[in-house]
Design a protein around this nucleic acid. Structure first.
Lengths: 162, 162
DNA sequence: CTTTCTGCAAACAATTTGCAGCACG
DNA sequence: CGTGCTGCAAATTGTTTGCAGAAAG
């Protein structure tokens, strides 16, 4: 499956993966979360690849080692790992699609508390040129920047609460 | 609903909206697509706001003017408008969630043809400071950059096809 | 041993689609 | 007037959840 040209999806070294899985095992013990076979193998699978697989893909691969594992467990574990800060999902959680009639090139500020999205422009970003390592990957057509944080309203609300 | 402080979601002027709706009407005539009442009102709704609403929200609002409109029509029209390049969806189409065990700060190159996602780093982006207009909106916690384009493999495949 | 997980199946939510009548051009 | 569009309802897909048995600590 993997050959020299498949450099996009290079797997990490066994040692690096073991390290990450070991760290998580320790964290589980510390927090009273059970370090089950399924969880370890799911993390091992994800830690060993850079191709950002979806739940179904992780499921298919882990099943080679744990044939009886269920897709639900994969979903549940991915959610757990995300909550524990061990993995993240690519791009901000997008439950439903949102639309934009502004077709001029622009970027977004996203409030992670209330979900508000505000457009902005930046000359600094317009001048951005992809680094050579990216140019080597292929052709870049557009640059999309998302700044994540808290809008003033949500910051204020959080302050009042505490 | 709208007050002076609600500057995030300022509506555009009537004139700008009319312009955009008129342009689309013309494009419809040109391409033999029917410029129905429903389509025009959906575009009008989206063109008149900067808050990047989802389908359900557009539906609720347009229904105030066309009570008998259905949610399906909203979905169908949004898809049509997107295909015609009149609107876009916020963030790249994410049918299914994808996960990443690399928790170091990094950015993504996304091939729009095959969906491959490759991580990269950039000192230029690490140095990026949000413009003052964004700082005024709230606190920025992280910067996520997505470069969209074609990977070498897909570029090559496209060339062979033509 | 006891509490937390897993697998199963059923539930959910966002979005898409087949069909018959209605409206635009 | 005919073809494309709409509304309705049913299908699809990704993801979540309730429950009883299984396993980790």
């Amino acid at each position: 499956m993997t050959n020299k040209n498949d450099s996009y999806f290079m797997k990490l070294t066994r040692k690096q993966v073991d390290q990450q899985v070991g760290d998580f095992t320790a964290a589980c013990r510390r927090e009273g979360v059970k370090a089950t076979h399924q969880r370890m193998e799911i993390l091992r699978e994800l830690a060993g690849t850079t191709e950002h697989p979806d739940a179904e893909t992780v499921y298919t691969r882990v099943r080679q080692r744990i044939p009886a594992i269920s897709l639900d467990t994969v979903y549940r574990t991915l959610r757990l790992l995300e909550k524990k800060g061990v993995i993240s999902r690519v791009s901000s959680r997008q439950d439903r699609a949102r639309f934009d009639a502004n077709m001029d090139h622009h970027h977004h500020f996203v409030c992670e508390a209330c979900g508000r999205i505000v457009d902005f422009n930046s000359t600094a970003l317009d001048d951005f040129r992809p680094p050579p390592e990216v140019a080597a990957l292929g052709r870049v057509d557009s640059v999309h920047v998302e700044l994540r944080g808290r809008c003033r309203t949500c910051k204020r609300a959080a302050g009042r609460r505490s």
